[in-house]
Design a protein around this nucleic acid. Structure first.
Length: 520
RNA sequence: GCGGGCGUAGCUCAGUGGUAGAGCGUCAGCCUUCCAAGCUGAAUGUCGAGGGUUCGAGCCCCUUCGCCCGCUCCA
């Protein structure tokens, strides 16, 4: 790449962009619209416009190319084997029983009428005697302060010497009867009986398969793409020549009936995941976990999230999912969005899922040990463990938009979108400097040539400055302009988005010049 | 669900009871041999919806819908 492409030479942003400005540009330029807007919209659903659709497509294509198609060197240098699948959104509902989503992917919530706070019912513990009308203090699990407050409060209602006896009378809040709840005092309340009964918030969307709408026909929209991969584990083994260690990749929509969608497309109810389930021998979990953690972090950097706004965070033991408690670990690749700053929001999780899912499906499907993998080299039959890098493509797209948004008071548009060239929706603008004297004809010819490979924009109208400004807001990295000289010597000027600098190259070199910079 | 905020042009917003506006964008024409996003002109609104008060409502009242923020959840 030439010096003009270097981000180091770009002007310093004049201020920190707000999310409102980014949302506004997304709408104005056609990156992202609210879904069903003409009917007032629908909370938690978003549409991609012409530029947004290209941006997201570039992100997904890059992922598929880099993970599935291109050679990737594993921890020991040998190529990593990954194949793709594309599974349905609606599956046999038993899948979600096996995965634990029907039983566990819903969180009963408890509201406190006094403190106005909301708690997850399964995070609340009750302290107090199992006696009718006994005072019960509710506290937060694994929270020493909350427990201490509960004990102190309970002392006022119990004889001092009985606290020791009461102390181990700790029960989950969900075990309390309605009558007991009436005597329970919330973690941040003073009056008893202000906690509501636990209410279910099932995060899975339900639907009905077939014309009859009854319990037997109930099905779910998948809350994660992973289960389609696990359910096809044997099919892939039987129909391809992959052997452990190998991965199965999938990009697809997933649905979660979030309690509160928030922050633009960050928490949407319908979203797209790019997941790899990478199957390994249990003894190599640490090595592969570290490999994928580092690999995925580097990948996000490679598509333009290279600065301080990207970080890698290892999870603490206490925040691990049920299936990952005993594993090699779990971490998130996180991005500092304007709405999370100075904190970060998750783009991708890399988790050691152990053999949890395969075991669950072996059990629930009745396939049992037949689902085990036979390892020729080891002469061993086992359930492979899984390392799962699972990224959000909508979140990734949003991160690309936030990272690209660069205010620049010195240029007419006032802002430009500094996308990595590989991600940029429009790769090049092709302009006749003036819309006459043979220039439009030459520009159009060049445009036709480039269009066979990339999305480029031919624009002969209005002043050249206006056209550059428009391309700045679309994030188009290069503009080729045909001027009077072009007709004489067959050269064109290249205008670089990030620096506004220009250089001159032969028109016959443009395609190769672009290919080199777009990595394609 | 609870609490708070907000709904006026594609975007950002002004308009506190008396004929719906501005800037930007979009489009057309002009100009233009590299930042001219300059010049001229044009299109664009059931003022979220319904009801009420009033001679008169974008503005006041009620209802409703939607969006945003917080609690909770999460790729």
């Amino acid at each position: 790449m030439s010096a003009q492409d270097s981000s180091a030479s770009a002007p310093t942003p004049s201020k920190t962009p707000s999310m409102e400005e980014i949302v506004s540009l997304c709408r104005r330029r056609g990156f992202i619209f609210g879904s069903s807007e003409i009917y007032g919209g629908i909370n938690g659903f978003w549409d991609y416009g012409p530029l947004g659709a290209e941006l997201k497509r570039n992100l997904k294509s890059a992922w598929w190319e880099d993970m599935v198609l291109r050679e990737l060197a594993g921890p020991d240098g040998t190529p990593v084997d990954i194949v793709g699948v594309d599974c349905t959104i609606i599956m046999n509902p038993k899948v979600w029983v096996a995965s634990g989503h029907v039983g566990g992917f819903n969180d009963p919530m408890v509201d406190c009428r006094e403190s106005k706070l909301r708690y997850r019912a399964d995070h609340l513990m009750a302290l107090g005697a199992v006696e009718p009308r006994a005072r019960i203090q509710v506290f937060l699990e694994n929270d020493a302060d909350s427990l201490a407050r509960a004990e102190k409060a309970l002392l006022k209602y119990e004889r001092r010497d009985s606290l020791d006896a009461v102390r181990h009378l700790v029960r989950p809040f969900t075990a309390l009867s309605a009558e007991e709840r009436a005597h329970a005092v919330g973690p941040d309340a003073k009056e008893p009986g202000t906690l509501t009964e636990p209410r279910q918030f099932n995060l899975m969307f339900e639907t009905f398969v077939g014309a009859i709408r009854d319990e037997d026909s109930k099905a779910y929209l998948r809350p994660e793409t992973a289960q389609g991969i696990f359910a096809n584990f044997q099919n892939v083994l039987d129909s391809t020549r992959v052997r452990v260690p190998f991965g199965i990749a999938q990009i697809g929509k997933a649905f979660r009936n979030e309690v509160t969608p928030r922050n633009f497309t960050f928490r949407s109810r319908e979203f797209e995941q790019a997941e790899i389930e990478f199957f390994i021998h249990p003894s190599s979990a640490n090595e592969w976990y570290a490999f994928w953690r580092d690999q995925r972090y580097k990948w996000w950097q490679s598509i333009g999230l290279a600065g301080d706004n990207l970080t890698l965070r290892e999870h603490g033991r206490d925040e691990l999912a049920h299936y990952a408690k005993e594993g090699a670990g779990c971490c998130d690749v996180e991005y500092r969005f304007p709405f999370t700053a100075p904190g970060f929001g998750e783009l991708e999780g890399v988790a050691h899922r152990s053999d949890y899912d395969l075991r669950q499906h072996a059990e629930h499907s009745g396939k049992r040990d037949k689902m085990k993998y036979f390892d020729q080299e080891r002469s061993e039959r086992y359930f492979p463990h899984v390392i799962e890098p699972s990224g959000g493509m909508d979140r990734g797209t949003l991160a690309l938009l936030c990272e690209a948004y660069t205010p620049d008071a010195t240029r007419p548009s006032g802002v430009f979108m500094k996308f990595h060239p590989r991600m940029a929706p429009v790769k090049a603008g092709i302009f006749p400097l003036v819309n006459k004297d043979g220039m439009p004809e030459m520009a159009e010819k060049l445009s036709r040539q480039l269009r066979t490979r990339w999305l480029v924009e031919f624009d002969p109208k209005q002043s050249i400055g206006k056209r550059y400004a428009r391309m700045d807001e679309a994030g188009t990295p290069y503009c080729f302009t045909i001027d009077g000289e072009s007709l004489k010597d067959q050269t064109v000027t290249v205008r670089h988005r990030d620096t506004q600098a220009q250089e001159r190259i032969g028109v016959d070199r443009v395609e190769a010049w672009l290919a080199e910079r777009l990595g394609a």
